[in-house]
Design a protein around this nucleic acid. Structure first.
Length: 692
DNA sequence: CGTAGACACTTTTTT
DNA sequence: AGTGTCTACG
């Protein structure tokens, strides 16, 4: 148990707390995960059966890491700890008990993602004969979500309510469940069904919660019920890092928990991440928020550190240039690209910086974007698998019935759907009965045969890795991609290969028959997000929104585009509540930095195609320390002429090249294809001059 | 059925 | 400015 000795006093106090409700207020970088895992390990050491401990997190990644750490600390029997995301926990409950609910769900229901949900909303709008221009699918989906999870009393318009009902009916008729339902139905089972409630209230002796500040109303109610009997709720969170209010996180849950459970509080404010000038700025900034349930002042033993660098540029373009220049200097000082993150308020801002980094040949990765399982080809493949697995999955059948193209158009699909509805059978079964002209009918019958062939092939399989090759050839999907022969079709083939390796790994993880393994794998995929993968292997500068890096840390952080209207965002200026959330986002940003923090903005910027004036974000002033020396704008016109026309160079990323021209400190260099001509800073560390 | 051009939108998004 | 979605036409 020597890991107990590695804890500081407040961490230890939390870990050995004898039970009963406890709120651990864990500031940024104060060893939150360490405390939580130590607590689980401690409970196990104290003789609590691992299977009687439930710990909930928000991301799969957090759940997985925590489980690995607990196993490291206490041995393999820690496998039995129920360590899940909220949604995965809900899924566990629903797979066992959903048939009790009066909605006609079977244990084999399918979990749909956000995009599928939007597609259904959009189909319902069309089905009801409404003018699709009158509705925003995105807005409606979010209204439906608000209503379902009790965050909105009623719909303002009766047609909105009709769409909601249509959506809900569609889900139920097709055995589909969305992310909201995973939590809502779980709560419903725990609330309305006494035996189920009692079962789970007594199934766990301890319930632990990570990132408590991000829980919403439904999640809180679930926790409240689970903890009602034994009261052993160990809750870790930082109200100052609550930045998902827009998504339903209820800032008041912290106060509610303290009150409802009369919980004790332990504050962790010893920081192990950042130097103190950085922490002071964070402390100063967040002190501007009035609504703070537990105040704390972060301090570390890491010394004063480097002063924060504030920088103003004349234009958005110059701001990117400044950042690129600083990055190059940092690399010369011995930092790795991997140590550096460029953080911004919204995804659209990534583009400018991306362009500048490309121009300079700096390797980078952008967080976010389309996640792997949202890619078209992946969703297509999964849809095929689902339909072959269960022919009555109309929603997924619609997706792939004409992919690859089989001349089954919208009209034919609509007719098939109507026929199915009329006869009260699935679309798949309706293929035999639908009345269509020769070509369409023939294509449908061919499609039906493909699905039947697939099913037959599946029945013969023992392992998941056998699945993809058969799928790709029988459906004609691979032929389609090969025929297309474009850059994007190559990407798509790569992604499908990646899916193949997902299944191959599934063979190791899961046990049982082919179908048992397949269903577990599909469940895992349904709750997967891209944040779950590790992206630390390569040496890259990271570009991300503040939201995307919550929980991460970097030696160097650039907080860019710190301009009023962008950060804080225009839409947040109207309400104190939202403004305080914006400030918490900035707080999260500052506290990501370990050694050096840069805060930059520009006076002129292109916004939606128009040049706008930029004013410094109030967060600059609010976080700025009196001791800071104001740093004036500096220009970077250097003329060192390290390279001249005709020189041969070797670049870390682009390989061999020849200098075409040199203008000031920018060299134009021709590299071999596929890289071509690049404009690079001649002093860039990735470039080496070589003798030909 | 497929696609060119009009037009509409643009905060953050752990599941 | 850039991108995704809808509509009208061949």
């Amino acid at each position: 148990m020597n890991w107990l000795a590695t804890l500081n006093e407040s961490q230890l106090q939390a870990v050995i707390h004898p039970g009963g409700p406890l709120f651990v207020v864990a500031g940024a970088g104060t060893g939150k995960t360490r405390t939580l895992t130590a607590k689980i390990a401690y409970l196990i050491m104290q003789g609590v059966k691992p299977g009687r401990i439930l710990a909930v997190t928000f991301t799969n990644k957090a759940a997985r890491e925590m489980k690995e750490r607990v196993i490291d600390m206490t041995g393999p029997h820690a496998m039995d700890v129920w360590l899940y995301t909220f949604h995965a926990f809900g899924l566990q409950i629903l797979r066992r008990h959903i048939a009790e609910l009066p909605y006609g769900y079977k244990a084999s229901f399918t979990v749909i993602d956000e995009d599928d949900g939007k597609k259904i909303v959009s189909d319902v709008i069309k089905d009801l004969g409404f003018d699709s221009k009158m509705f925003s699918v995105k807005a409606l989906k979010s209204l439906i979500s608000l209503f379902k999870s009790n965050r909105m009393e009623e719909f303002e318009r009766s047609d909105e309510e009709k769409i909601y009902k249509g959506y809900q009916t569609y889900l139920r008729e097709n055995q589909l469940i969305d992310f909201d339902d995973l939590l809502i139905y779980t709560l419903e089972l725990l609330t309305d069904y006494k035996e189920i409630r009692v079962l789970y209230q007594h199934r766990f002796d301890h319930v632990l919660v990570d990132e408590f500040q991000d829980t919403d109303v439904i999640q809180y109610k679930i926790l409240k019920i689970l903890g009602e009997v034994h009261k052993n709720l160990f809750v870790v969170g930082d109200p100052d890092q609550s930045i998902y209010g827009f998504r339903g996180a209820n800032y008041n849950n912290s106060k509610l928990f303290l009150k409802d459970f009369n919980a004790q509080e332990v504050v962790l404010d010893k920081n192990y991440r950042s130097t103190n000038l950085i922490l002071n700025a964070a402390n100063k900034l967040i002190a501007n928020n009035f609504n703070r349930p537990s105040e704390k002042n972060l301090q570390s033993d890491l010394g004063q550190g480097e002063p924060i660098v504030y920088n103003k540029e004349q234009s958005d373009y110059q701001e990117t240039f400044y950042v690129v220049n600083q990055i190059n200097q940092l690399i010369r000082k011995g930092y790795q690209y991997d140590d550096i993150a460029i953080l911004y308020r919204n995804n659209a801002l990534s583009r400018l910086f991306e362009d500048a980094l490309i121009k300079d040949g700096i390797p980078y990765i952008i967080y976010g974007g389309i996640s792997f399982y949202q890619r078209r080809e992946i969703k297509d493949a999964l849809a095929y698998i689902r339909v072959a697995n269960d022919h009555s999955q109309d929603f997924y059948l619609k997706r792939i019935v004409n992919v690859p193209k089989r001349s089954i158009g919208l009209v034919s699909v609509r007719k098939l759907e109507d026929t199915a509805r009329h006869l009260g059978i699935s679309m798949f079964d309706a293929i035999d009965f639908v009345i269509l002209r020769g070509q369409a009918k023939e294509s449908l019958l061919k499609f039906k045969q493909i699905i039947l062939d697939l099913k037959e092939a599946f029945d013969e399989m023992e392992d998941l890795y056998q699945l993809m090759p058969v799928l790709m050839s029988k459906t004609g999907y691979m032929d389609m991609l090969k025929l297309e022969d474009s850059e994007s079709s190559e990407d798509r083939m790569d992604n499908l290969k990646e899916l193949q390796s997902v299944f191959t790994r599934g063979d190791v993880y899961y046990e049982g028959t082919f179908y048992e393994k397949l269903n577990q794998q599909l469940d895992q995929i349904a709750l997967y997000s891209d944040l779950d993968q590790d992206v630390t292997e390569d040496n890259h500068v990271k570009l991300a929104t503040y939201h995307q890096v919550k929980g991460l840390e970097f030696k160097i952080v650039f907080m860019v585009v710190l301009e009023e209207g962008i950060f804080p965002n225009d839409r947040a200026l109207m309400s104190t509540y939202e403004l305080e959330e914006e400030r918490r986002v900035a707080y999260v940003g500052i506290t990501r930095a370990k050694e050096r923090l840069y805060m930059t903005y520009a006076e002129r910027r292109m916004v939606y195609g128009q040049t706008k004036m930029g004013y410094p974000s109030r967060f600059l002033k609010e976080s700025r320390l009196n001791t800071d020396v104001p740093k004036e704008h500096v220009t970077y016109a250097k003329e060192s002429h390290l390279l001249k026309t005709g020189d041969h160079v070797d670049h870390q990323v682009f390989g061999r090249g020849v200098v075409v021209s040199v203008d000031q400190d920018i060299a134009t260099i021709a590299f071999a294809m596929p890289y071509g001509i690049k404009n690079l800073l001649e002093s860039h560390p990735a470039i080496k001059k070589v003798k030909k």
